[in-house]
Every structure is written in C-alpha cells, then in structure tokens.
C-alpha cells in the first residue's frame, strides 16, 4: 500500500513540476515582456532555419535578412544595441508553439498573417514587412511557362505546416487538376528532393522560391512561373496579451518604413534632428515624447534608424543586392507605386 502511495506522490510531483515550468503570470501591469527583455539584456527572436534575404546565418553565425532586421530594430529601441538579439531558428511547425510557450518574444519568420492564426491560437500580428504571394517553380527544360500548362498527375514538393499546403489544394481543385503533394518538414529537404527530380514543381511563397533557387545545384535551370495564386502578407508576430510589447514591435517596424518615406537613412539620421519638418523631427526623437507610452526614452526611433537603417536600406542590403528579388514590386512605398503604407508617428 505504502509503496504505491510513494509512487503516486512522485508522479503528482512530476506533473506539478511540468506545469509550473512554464509559469508566467500576465498580471503585471506594465509590459512583462519588456521588463524581462531589459533584465536579460537581449531580445529573444524566432527566425527561419535559413531563408536567404529574410533570415539567414553566415558561416560565422551572423544573422542577416529583412526579418532579422525587425528584431534588431526592437533591440535597438529597447536595449540601445541592435546586436543584442538571441536568434532561435525554428521550423514552420515549431514556430507558434515557441512563441506562445514563451521561448521567444518575437516571431519574425516570413509568417503569413491570416484570420485563424491571428484570432485562434493566442498570437497577434503586428504588421506586414513583406507582401508576398505563392507561386510555382519548374525546370526550364520542361517547357512550362504558365500554370495553365499543368496536367493531371503532376507532383508538387512543398513544406508542411504552412498556408502553402492549403493554397495548393485550393489552386489545383479550382483548376480541376489531380496532383500529388510531397510535403517535407524542412525547406532544405524540399529543395533537395525537387532538385533531384522527385517533383515536377516546387511551390511556396515567391520570395522563398527566389531565395531557394540560389541554393540549387544549377539555379539557371529553373524558372518561377508568373502566376501568383495567393496573398501572403508576411510579418512579425507577438504573443497575445502584452499590448505594450505589441506596440513596441509594431512601431519599430513602422519607424523603419516611415523613415524611408521621409528620406531618413542611417547615414543622415543625426543631421535630421535639425530638420525643418516636424514629422521628420518626431521620427528622430527631436520633437514630442514619442517613447513615453512604451516606457522608452525619446531616441528609441533614432537608434533604430541609425543602427538598422530604414526599410529601403534593409531591403536593398538583404534582398535586392543579393540578387534574390531586385524588383521591389508591391513592397515599394505607396508614394512610389507600391503598397507600403504605415500610420504616422505622432
């Protein structure tokens, strides 16, 4: 009898330990995430396992990309140093659990903003840092130049755990084409299998196709078809329930985009303090009390622009100059024919 009682007690203790492990009371009035981040001295940021242009680590372990820059901007704002970021590479499958369980505080990993993700699973999307759409890649030698040439029996390689799988089904169903989905857990394996000839086409976000093409054994043998079959607004995500932190991340991103709009760059940001334009002065912390509401000092936005640069600089450095997508397309400012439009900082 006592023997069993002892076993039972240890079992109960084990379960108790398991549940207290992830304790994090959200009752704190101010932003708990902000407080924790300042105490730790680094921003915990979830990124991809390697997508050139968005989040990719070089041989020395330095992360670069437009998604990476969002986290760096937040670090510059709240900690004063854009390098104080701890990056956690996550698969598509792990990413939301890592965020909701508190392992990371920002998820900036080419993640599509959808209703069910925003409303259902304890996440909040704070904005869009890249407007994308799903496309298809095929081998040039196949002679296919449009998705209208797809035939019954086509096999399509892709990743699991993404909106891609759902869009692909919608697309093929609406065209009445029967297809074989071949879904892998990691992008590297998708590329390897497609490259080997396992699949006739490779489908994911067009930016992803452009980036992964650079990893193939012979990039020139492949083309991305012109059709776009879905809307994929990609953006950073935070946990639901900490509105101050949510605002910090949102406005860090907005600052980068607005800085480009007003021509403020990492090079001229300091000089802009004496600008005639009050809108520019607010952007570089020379007018108003723009950081107070977040519990930050007044130069949080200046640091973002100085250390990370504006959105245009980030895009050029990571996506255009690397040859992934030289043409900005919809990711151009609204003033230049694109759809990047953010609310004003005032």
């Amino acid at each position: 009898m006592f023997k069993y009682l002892k076993q039972l007690t240890s079992l109960v203790a084990m379960v108790a330990v398991l549940f207290t492990f992830s304790t994090e009371s959200m009752a704190a009035k101010k932003s708990k995430t902000l407080k924790n981040t300042q105490k730790k001295g680094f921003v915990r940021c979830g990124v991809s396992q390697g997508l050139p242009g968005f989040s990719n680590a070089d041989a020395a372990g330095n992360w670069t990309g437009v998604d990476v820059d969002v986290c760096r901007a937040v670090a510059a704002a709240v900690l004063g140093d854009a390098n104080k970021v701890k990056f956690t590479p996550l698969s598509a499958k792990e990413r939301f659990t890592a965020l909701t369980s508190g392992e990371i505080d920002i998820l900036s990993r080419n993640t599509t903003w959808t209703l069910s993700r925003d409303a259902d699973i304890g996440l909040t999307f704070v904005g869009v840092n890249f407007y994308d759409g799903q496309g298809f890649m095929v081998r040039k030698s196949s002679g296919i130049t449009s998705t209208s040439q797809f035939k019954d029996g086509i096999s399509a390689c892709t990743n699991i755990g993404t909106t891609t799988e759902l869009n692909m089904r919608d697309f093929f169903n609406s065209k009445g084409i029967s297809y074989t989905p071949v879904a892998f857990e990691k992008a590297d394996e998708v590329v390897a299998a497609y490259d080997a000839g396992r699949c006739d086409t490779y489908t994911t976000d067009k930016s992803g196709l452009a980036a992964q093409r650079t990893k193939m054994s012979n990039p020139d043998e492949h083309i991305v078809l012109p059709e776009t079959i879905s809307k994929e607004p990609l953006g950073p995500v935070v946990r639901q329930g900490d509105s101050v932190w949510e605002d910090i991340v949102r406005w860090s991103l907005n600052t980068m985009i607005e800085a480009e709009e007003y021509g403020v760059t990492s090079a001229n940001a300091d000089m802009m303090k004496t600008s005639e334009n009050p809108q520019i002065k607010r952007l570089v912390g020379a007018e108003g009390e723009m950081g107070a509401a977040f519990g930050l000092d007044n130069e949080w936005n200046l640091r973002i622009i100085k250390q990370v640069g504006n959105y245009g600089e980030s895009y050029k450095r990571n996506i255009a100059d690397t040859g992934i997508l030289p043409d900005r397309g919809p990711n151009e400012l609204w003033t230049k024919g694109g759809i990047l439009y953010v609310p004003p900082s005032r």
Partner: peptide
Amino acid sequence: LKQLAKTSFTYE
C-alpha cells in the same frame, strides 16, 4: 507512361 510537359513524365 504519361507526358506532363516537354521533359516531365509520370505513370498512370
């Protein structure tokens, strides 16, 4: 053998 495209085949 079924032809899907110029250099792309499968079996039915």
